[in-house]
Every structure is written in structure tokens, then in C-alpha cells.
Write a protein that binds this DNA or RNA. Structure first.
Lengths: 134, 134
DNA sequence: TAAAAATACTCCATAGGTATTTTAT
DNA sequence: ATAAAATACCTATGGAGTATTTTTA
């Protein structure tokens, strides 16, 4: 079961017709017919009853419609999250840190090291009271 | 983004290596390499850093791993639900309904009609007080 | 420099596409 | 009898499979 098949199934369920679903997806009716037959075979479940004015969902079809919607929604959320995640990726620039007394210099250095691995194009300038006082 | 690509991605993330993932899936390494490059291109996100001892997930990769797992889980639940749903499909047999007085015979008949459409191989025998009393 | 990944190339399965036949009311 | 689905058939895209080259720590 692939997402493409689920999209086709959802369109057919939505339209109540394989032919109309094909139009809405800009695909030939034969492709949808084949894909849906294949899906039913793979799942071992009859998803529609076919009649001369379209299709009607069986109980299994109704269940698959609900679940497929959830899947598509989750996939869409994943896509948009990835887009957002990508926004702050390639950090570049300089960061200066200064203080009269800086207690945890070593710990800070570790953090900076980790950060630098992730963002190699950011330069650090660290000033502490003890180092610059003399 | 198709489920096949997600499965490949999850295997690679799991193994920390495209080569090992290919072995675990019984597919050529080249196929996985291509599919993963294609996936990164489609999503516009770099999912791994490639090194001489394998791959390491980027932040986007980590996010996609979590979401892909959720998707696969949901798809699996869908499959098993469909299997369960199919179990009680082809009802067959006889049902007898009898009562001294049956007030809502007409309403009951409607229900039976609907039920019979769904389960055409179930026969009904209906006895009411007024019909059988004489 | 030695692994692992990427690329090149062939072959094949299957989706896309067009036309026709079958089905169900 | 008619609209819709199924089937037949051809084409083309893309995955599977094998071999080789490139990359990177």
C-alpha cells in the first residue's frame, strides 16, 4: 500500500465515482480503476460496490477512508515541519562573548565545540576577566 | 514522498549506514542511495551527513525519522483493522423473531430490509401475535 | 587509504495513456 | 439503453541489479 494508492482511493471516495476522481487528479480512468482493484486485492477487502451511477463505500471502505485521511494529514504535517526546520540551517557569522569574571569557561568551551561542529561557519570570540585582566 | 522511500529512510537511519540498510532490505545499495538522494531533493532537506564509516542524521533527519515511524505505525494499524473488519463480512443463516404482540412490525420490517441488503444470505422468519393468533 | 556512498548503465516492472468492451440498473 | 467501470494494448518512467568511480575522515 503506497501513498499514491491512498490518494487515489480518497479521491474516489470523495467523488463517489472513479471517473470523476480521475478527472480531478488529471489521470486516466483506467489508471484509477487498475490501482483500486490492485489495492482491494492487496488488502483482501472489497472497498466499493460498483453501480451504473458510481461507487459506494463498503464498511471496509469507510474505515480505510478515515485512516487514509489521518495518514495524509500526518504526512502533510511532516512536510511542513521539515520546511520550518530547514529555515535556520546554515548559520554564519561571528559571536563575541565577554564578561569581567566567567566561572565556567571550560564547560562553555565544550558547548561551543559541539555548536561549532554543527555550524562550522560561525566564529567565536571569547573574553574573560582573568584572561584579559593582565 | 512514498511509503517505500520512508521505509528505506527508516532502515538507513536505524542501521546508520546505507550499505547495511540495503542488506537488511535485500536491495542493492545503489537503489537506496538513489532513493535517499531523491527524497532529500524532493523535501529540500539534507537528511544525513555522509562519512567513510556510514551516515549520521541531521536535525531534519531526526525529525523525519520520528514522523516516519508514526506514519508506518498508523499504516500498520490500518492494515490490521481492515483484516478484523473483514472477518464478520459474509453473514449467512436464519433468524427467527417471535412475540405474542409485536407493536412496531412495520418499523422492524424496514430495519430487516436494510439488513438484508447488506447480508443477502440471511433469512428472516417473523411471527407476531396478531398474525398467528387466528 | 580504506570504508562507504555516488554514479553509470542495462533490464524489467508497472504506471500513464488511448481505445474498446463489459457491467449493472 | 446508458453511464460508469473494467479490460486490452502500447509507451515511457523509474526501480532493480551489476559494476565502477568518487568521496571523506
Amino acid at each position: 500500500m503506497e501513498l499514491k494508492a491512498m490518494r487515489i482511493f480518497l479521491a474516489a471516495a470523495e467523488e463517489g465515482s472513479i471517473t470523476k476522481a480521475a478527472e480531478s487528479l488529471n489521470l486516466p480512468q483506467s489508471t484509477l480503476s487498475r490501482q483500486l482493484a490492485r489495492l482491494e486485492e492487496e488488502l483482501g477487502a472489497k472497498l466499493f460496490t460498483r453501480g451504473p451511477q458510481g461507487i459506494e463505500l463498503t464498511r471496509e471502505g469507510l474505515m480505510l477512508r478515515r485512516r487514509s485521511s489521518e495518514v495524509m494529514e500526518l504526512v502533510e504535517r511532516t512536510r511542513s515541519e521539515l520546511r520550518l526546520c530547514g529555515r535556520d540551517r546554515p548559520l554564519t557569522g561571528d559571536i563575541s562573548i565577554g564578561a569581567g569574571e566567567l566561572a565556567a569557561t571550560d564547560a562553555l568551551a565544550e558547548y561551543i565545540e559541539v555548536f561549532s561542529k554543527r555550524h562550522p561557519h560561525v566564529s567565536f570570540y571569547l573574553y574573560t576577566g582573568s584572561a584579559t585582566e593582565g
